[in-house]
Nucleic acid binder design. Structure first.
Length: 807
RNA sequence: GCCGGGGUGGCGGAACUGGUCAGACGCGCCCGACUUAAAAUCGGGUGCCUUCGGGCAUGCGGGUUCGAGUCCCGCCCCCGGCACCA
C-alpha cells in the first residue's frame, strides 16, 4: 500500500524523498501560519507598497474536478505569486467559483438532486484538490457566484446599469440553443453551434435583456491600459476585429409613393452615383409592410435560414419588391429588392447596391441582369458622378457626405460589428434578475433594500422553452414595489458571464455587506497586475469585464478604466490533439499523479512540458525526469549539509553559476512569463553542484537551488531549507544576483577565418581587443588558413570572437 | 479572402538585442557499473553523411552581412480567430 508508514522512526524515513509525508506537513504549517493571507489597507490609510494582484480565471466547479489545464493555469499563477511575495510585494492571490450555470442544472435533471447540492459538492472536491497541490491562495477571500452574499451585489450592479440605460429589454432575434433551451451569447457560438453542448444554434425572436456593450465600442477598441500594462498583440487585435469598426455615412433614400425614408449605411459614399438598385434584408420591416406577395414569401423562407447557410449558398437569390427608392444624389429610381445576402443586424439592414464596385452587388446584378455603372476610373478618380467628377475617391467621400448633409439626406456614421450582449437566460440555476412587471407601472426595479431576490428552491428544472421559474406561482407573483398592485417577477436568470464580469472586484473586499466593494480597497489592489486564462474567453468574459469596469468607472464606483493590466494566455493541455474538456471526454486529472509522484513533481512537470503559452499534448512519460531531479536535489542537499564548508566568499565557478541561475529564473518568470526554461537552468545548477557537493561554494549553491525551486516545488524546498539549517523559506527574501559575478572571469574565444570557426580557446576577460587579435594570430590552426593570404579586415567582438577576413 | 501565431534531432523544446563549429535541459534509445535478478542509482554515448581530412544541416528558393535559426524579398505547409459586415 502506497504511502503507508508504520514506524515511528521519522528520521529514517526522511533519508529518502517521500513527498507523501512532507507535503501534507508543510501544507498544515502554512495554513496555521496564515502564510498566504493578506490584509486590506486600513480605511483612511495608504496600503502597503508595492503590492501585486495575481489572478487566474476562476474555475467552473465541474463534477469531474480539475484537469491538467487547470493545474497548469494555477501553478503558473502560484510561481509568480511566490516570487513577487518574496521580492517584497504584498500579493493578493484569491480563488473562487463560477458556480452558477447549466452543467449543474443539467446534472440535477439527469441524476436528481438540487443544482446547489451538486455544485457545492463539486466545490468541496476541487478545493481539496487545490489544497493538495499546495497553492498559495488567500482562502479567506473565497467567493462563489451562487452565494446570495455574492449575487445580491450582482443584482445591485444590474440595477445601476439599468438606471444608466446600459441594461435594457427589447425584442430581438437571438441565438437559441434547442438542446439547452436557452439563449446563447454571440461570443460562445462556434461554427453555428453551441460551444457548451454542440447543438446547432437556431434563431428566435424573443424579448430579452441586453447590456449595451456597443455604447463603449470605441473605448473597448482603444485599450486604456495603465503604464506598464500589456496585452498580447493577438488578444488586442482579436477584440478589435470582434468589435469591427467601419467608418462611412448613413444616407436616406426616399420611397416617393409611400412618403417614407429608408436609411442605408455605406463605407463608400464616393460610389453613390453608381448605385443601380437597392436591397433590404428579409427581416427588414419594409418587406412585411410594403413588399409584393412574392417578395414577402421569399423573405419568410430566407429569414428562416441561418446566416452561415445563407453565406454558403453559391448563387445570389432575391425578389423585386415592386417598389422604388430615389437616389438622393441624382434622383435615379432604384428598384428595391429583398435578398438574403443583406443582413438585418448590421448597419440598417438595407443597402444601396453598387455592382461596379462591390463584388457581392456585382454577383447579384449578374444573376438578375441589373445595370452596372462604373463611377471610379482606374486612377481612382470619380466619373459619371455629376459635379464630383475628377475628384479622388477619398476626397469625394467627404465632399459627397458634406453635400448630403447640407441637403438633410445624409451624415457621417460609424458602424460596428459588435452587438449588444443579450444576457437573459431561460434557465433556473442563475442569478435572478431583480425586476418586476406591473400592469400599471410597467418595468419596476426591485428596491435595493429588498435584495437579494433569492433564487427559490424548486423541483422541476425541466426546460420547456420558457424559464422554469415562470411556473413557480408562489414565487413569481408579488406586489408591485411601486404601487402595491399585483405584479410578476422576471423569470429569466442572468448569464453566468455577468457574475464573472465583476468577481475580481469582489475578491478584494469579499465580506462587504454594505456595497459590492469599497472603492478605497478596489482602487488600492486593482487593476489586476497579471491575469492568466484561456484565450477562448477573449471576446466573451474578457470583453464583458472591460465593459463593466469602464461603465463602473463612469458611475464613479472605481478609479480605473481597465481591469487587467497584463494578460497571459496559457496554451491548451491536449489529449489526442484536442483541448481537454468534459464534453470531449479526454480529461486527465491531477489526483492519481499527485498520489504517485507528489504535488511538487506534478506542479513542476506541467510547467516543464513546454512554453506555457503554446498548446501541449499531455504525456506522462516526462514526469520521471522531474522526479529524478527532485530526488537528486534531495540527495545533493543532504550531502552538502553534511560535507560542505560554511558559506565562503562565493566567487568560484559554481557560485557564478548560482548567480546566473538567479538572474535567469527571475527574468524568465517575471519579465518573459516563461516557466520551463528556469527549470532547465535549475537542473544545470544542480548538475554542477552534484559534481562536488563538498566544494567551497557548494553550500551557497545548494541554498540558492532550494530557494529558487521554492515557487515551483514549495514542499520539498521548505523541507530542504530546514536541512540546510534555516526555516520559513516562504518568507525568505528572493535571491538577487550579484551583477559582478554574472560574468565568467575567462571566456572561450572563438577565432574565425572568413566566418568559419578555426579555433577556440579560453582567455581572460580582461584582455584588450589587440591582445585578443595577437592571441588569435598565434594559433597554428588559424595561421594555416591565413598564411599566404592578405588579411583585409579584422572583426573583434568583445568577449566573443575574432574574425579574420582574408582573400 | 482578411488578421494573428508557427515550421529546429526519434520526441518536448533551447538559442531573449544577428556573434562560442545550432541542438541547452529533459524524455526516449544504446553501452557500461552496482545487483542472484529486477527496480532505483551512478558513469559514458546519442543530428545526418564520411574515404576520418572533413562535409552537410534550423520548411523551400533568393538576398543583405565579416558572420543569419535570428534581418529583407518570394514561395510552400500547419494551427487559431473573423468572414455575404455593405
Amino acid at each position: 500500500m502506497r504511502g503507508f508508514f508504520v514506524s515511528g522512526d521519522e528520521q529514517r524515513a526522511m533519508d529518502k524523498y517521500q513527498p507523501e509525508l512532507i507535503e501534507p506537513k508543510w501544507q498544515r504549517v502554512w495554513d496555521e501560519a496564515r502564510a498566504f493571507n493578506v490584509p486590506n489597507p486600513v480605511p483612511g490609510e495608504p496600503g502597503a507598497e508595492p503590492h501585486w494582484y495575481q489572478l487566474e480565471m476562476l474555475p467552473y466547479p465541474s463534477g469531474n474536478g480539475m484537469h491538467m489545464g487547470h493545474v497548469l493555469n494555477y501553478t503558473m499563477g502560484d510561481v509568480v505569486t511566490h516570487i513577487r511575495r518574496r521580492s517584497g510585494a504584498t500579493v493578493v492571490r484569491p480563488m473562487g467559483w463560477d458556480s452558477f450555470g447549466l452543467p449543474a442544472e443539467n446534472a440535477a435533471i439527469r441524476e436528481g438532486g438540487h443544482p446547489r447540492e451538486i455544485t457545492e459538492r463539486n466545490i468541496a472536491t476541487i478545493r481539496a484538490q487545490m489544497k493538495r497541490l499546495g497553492w498559495a491562495i488567500d482562502w479567506d477571500r473565497e467567493v462563489a457566484s451562487h452565494d446570495p452574499a455574492f449575487y445580491r451585489w450582482t443584482q445591485w450592479l444590474f440595477l445601476r446599469f439599468y438606471e444608466q440605460g446600459l441594461a435594457y429589454r427589447r425584442e430581438a432575434p437571438v441565438n437559441w440553443c434547442p438542446n439547452d433551451q436557452t439563449v446563447v451569447a454571440d461570443a460562445y457560438i462556434v461554427d453555428g453551434h453551441c460551444e457548451r453542448c454542440g447543438a446547432q444554434i437556431e434563431f428566435r425572436n424573443m424579448t430579452q435583456w441586453f447590456f449595451k456593450t456597443t455604447a463603449y465600442a470605441d473605448e473597448l477598441r482603444a485599450f486604456e491600459l495603465p503604464s506598464g500594462g500589456a496585452w498580447p498583440e493577438r488578444s488586442v487585435t482579436g477584440q478589435r476585429n470582434w468589435i469591427g469598426r467601419s467608418e462611412g455615412a448613413e444616407v436616406l433614400f426616399r420611397v416617393d409613393d409611400l412618403d417614407i425614408d429608408l436609411p442605408v449605411f455605406t463605407t463608400r459614399p464616393d460610389t453613390l452615383f453608381g448605385a443601380t438598385f437597392f436591397v433590404v434584408a428579409p427581416e427588414h420591416p419594409f418587406v412585411e409592410a410594403h413588399a409584393s406577395d412574392e417578395a414577402r414569401e421569399y423573405a419568410r423562407l430566407a429569414g428562416a435560414k441561418r446566416t452561415e447557410e445563407r453565406a454558403a449558398e453559391t448563387e445570389k437569390t432575391g425578389v423585386f419588391t415592386g417598389r422604388y427608392a430615389t437616389n438622393p444624389v441624382n434622383g435615379a429610381q432604384l428598384p428595391i429588392w429583398v435578398a438574403d445576402y443583406v443582413l438585418m443586424d448590421y448597419g440598417t439592414g438595407a443597402i444601396m447596391a453598387v455592382p461596379a464596385h462591390d463584388e457581392r452587388d456585382r454577383e447579384f446584378a449578374e444573376t438578375f441582369a441589373l445595370p452596372v455603372v462604373t463611377v471610379i476610373d482606374d486612377d481612382g478618380h470619380l466619373v459619371a458622378s455629376g459635379g464630383f467628377d475628377t475628384l479622388p475617391a477619398e476626397e469625394a467621400k467627404r465632399a459627397i457626405v458634406d453635400w448630403l448633409h447640407e441637403q438633410g439626406r445624409g451624415a457621417p456614421a460609424v458602424s460596428y460589428r459588435l452587438r449588444d450582449w443579450s444576457f437573459s437566460r431561460q434557465r433556473y440555476w442563475g442569478c435572478p434578475i431583480p425586476i418586476v412587471y406591473c400592469d400599471d407601472c410597467g418595468i419596476v426595479e426591485v428596491p435595493d433594500e429588498d435584495l437579494p431576490v433569492l433564487l427559490p428552491d424548486i423541483d422541476d428544472y425541466q426546460p420547456k422553452g420558457k424559464a422554469p421559474l415562470a411556473s413557480n406561482e408562489e414565487w413569481i407573483n408579488v406586489d408591485c414595489p411601486k404601487c402595491g398592485g399585483p405584479a410578476r417577477r422576471e423569470a429569466d436568470t442572468m448569464d453566468t458571464f455577468v457574475d464573472s464580469s465583476w468577481y475580481f472586484l469582489r475578491y478584494v473586499d469579499p465580506h462587504n455587506d454594505r456595497a459590492p466593494f469599497d472603492r478605497h480597497v478596489v482602487d488600492y489592489w486593482l487593476p489586476v497586475d497579471l491575469y492568466i486564462g484561456g484565450i477562448d474567453h477573449l471576446n466573451g468574459h474578457l470583453l464583458y469585464s472591460r465593459f463593466f469596469v469602464k461603465a463602473m468607472n463612469d458611475f464613479g464606483m472605481l478609479g480605473f478604466r481597465e481591469p487587467f493590466a497584463r494578460l497571459f494566455h496559457q496554451g491548451w493541455v491536449q489529449m489526442g490533439g484536442t483541448k481537454m474538456s468534459k464534453t470531449k471526454g479526454n480529461v486527465m486529472g491531477p489526483d492519481e499523479l499527485v498520489a504517485e509522484y507528489g504535488a511538487d513533481a506534478v506542479r513542476m512537470y506541467i510547467l516543464f512540458m513546454g512554453p506555457a503559452d503554446q498548446d501541449m499534448e499531455w504525456t506522462e512519460s516526462g514526469i520521471e525526469g522531474i522526479v529524478r531531479f527532485l530526488r537528486r536535489l534531495w540527495r545533493a542537499v543532504h550531502e552538502v549539509a553534511e560535507r560542505a564548508p560554511e558559506r565562503g566568499p562565493g566567487t568560484s565557478a559554481l557560485a557564478r553559476t548560482a548567480h546566473r541561475t538567479i538572474a535567469k529564473v527571475t527574468d524568465d518568470v517575471l519579465r518573459r512569463i516563461q516557466f520551463h526554461t528556469p527549470i532547465s537552468a535549475m537542473m544545470e545548477l544542480l548538475n554542477e553542484l552534484s559534481d562536488d557537493p563538498a566544494a567551497a561554494d557548494a553550500r551557497f549553491a545548494a541554498e540558492t537551488a532550494v530557494s529558487l525551486v521554492q515557487p515551483y516545488a514549495p514542499h520539498i524546498a521548505e523541507e530542504l531549507w530546514g536541512v540546510l539549517g534555516h526555516e520559513r523559506l516562504w518568507e525568505e527574501a528572493w535571491p538577487v544576483a550579484d551583477p559582478s559575478l554574472l560574468e565568467r572571469d575567462t571566456f572561450e574565444l572563438v577565432v574565425q577565418v572568413n566566418g568559419k570557426v578555426r579555433d577556440r580557446f579560453e582567455v581572460d576577460v580582461s584582455l584588450s581587443g589587440d591582445e585578443l587579435v595577437a592571441l588569435a594570430l598565434a594559433s597554428e590552426r588559424v595561421r594555416a588558413h591565413i598564411d599566404g593570404a592578405t588579411v583585409r579586415k579584422t572583426i573583434v567582438v568583445p568577449r566573443k570572437l575574432v574574425n579574420f577576413v582574408v582573400g
